[in-house]
């Protein structure tokens, strides 16, 4: 893994408010798709990315990302307080791994989908995080980014 990515992840972590425990809200969907060639089919993937507002395809799981880029995606979502998202581990399923690349016509993992639409990989999510677009995109989904502050969240309990 590149040093820069390590630094990026470290910088992201510094942004965070400590803690680091995963809420059980994150669903690691894994390879529960029944296996076989079905998991990489367009119909199956279409349903998968549309089932949840925020869907990510990772190498590894949110708890244990197996790659720096996947880890960066997980950390960015964590920073924004996005806990309710579906994560699929492509390392569990070769059909899923190839299928999702074909589906989005995007050559790399991780991949992020918001409201069923492909957003990009790690670089794009990181830049959306940096330029404020991610906050706006989350707002469209009805998700309030934790970076906007917590006062209102506490009131609305």
């Amino acid at each position: 893994m590149s040093g820069s990515l390590g630094r990026a992840a470290a910088a992201l972590l510094r942004w965070g408010r400590g803690g680091g425990l995963w809420s059980p809200g994150v669903r690691t969907a894994g390879s529960g798709a029944g296996g076989g060639s079905g998991s990489g089919s367009t119909e199956h993937l279409d349903a998968l990315v549309k089932k949840d507002k925020v869907v990510v395809f990772l190498k590894g799981t949110p708890e244990q990302p197996q790659c720096g880029f996947s880890n960066a995606v997980v950390q960015i979502l964590r920073l924004h307080g996005v806990r309710d998202y579906a994560a699929y581990n492509v390392l569990d399923d070769p059909d899923l791994r190839q299928g999702i690349k074909d589906y989005s016509n995007w050559p790399t993992i991780p991949q992020v989908y918001l409201n069923g639409e492909f957003v990009g990989g790690c670089d794009i999510l990181l830049q959306m995080h940096q330029n404020g677009d991610l906050v706006e995109e989350l707002k469209k989904l009805g998700v309030r980014s934790a970076l906007l502050g917590e006062d209102k969240d506490q009131d609305s309990k």
Partner: peptide, 9 residues
């Protein structure tokens, strides 16, 4: 951004 990155890809 997505289209730019697609061009590079």
């Amino acid at each position: 951004l997505l289209q730019r990155h697609r061009l590079v890809n």
